[in-house]
């Protein structure tokens, strides 16, 4: 495994923001929605987005140890 690039880290951080927004939107739809099919789907999506978020977080965690502490040229 290679160290993560700065660009990859940026994409991961942006992706976690996206997933966080989707988690909130799915929660809102589950709470305020009136169509059972959509409510059930939003609850299912909620779990998937939480998994996505955790996967992204784990990727950072796994690369923490091999990340350099000084800027490379």
């Amino acid at each position: 495994m290679k160290p993560m690039t700065a660009k990859e880290l940026e994409y991961i951080a942006d992706s976690m923001s996206n997933e966080e927004l989707l988690i909130k939107q799915c929660t809102a739809l589950a709470v305020t929605g009136t169509t059972p099919a959509l409510q059930n789907l939003s609850l299912q999506f909620l779990q998937t987005h939480q998994n996505h978020y955790d996967s992204l977080l784990h990727a950072i965690q796994h690369h923490q140890q091999m990340a350099p502490t000084q800027p490379q040229q």
Binding site: T5, E8, Y11, N18, Q25, S42
Partner: peptide
Amino acid sequence: LAGAILSDLKRVVREYATAATESTCPDI
């Protein structure tokens, strides 16, 4: 609300595709 989620999902698919093409680490 459902429409907002749908368009966000479409956007996120594109962003993941871009991120994948610009990644150098195979695991990422």
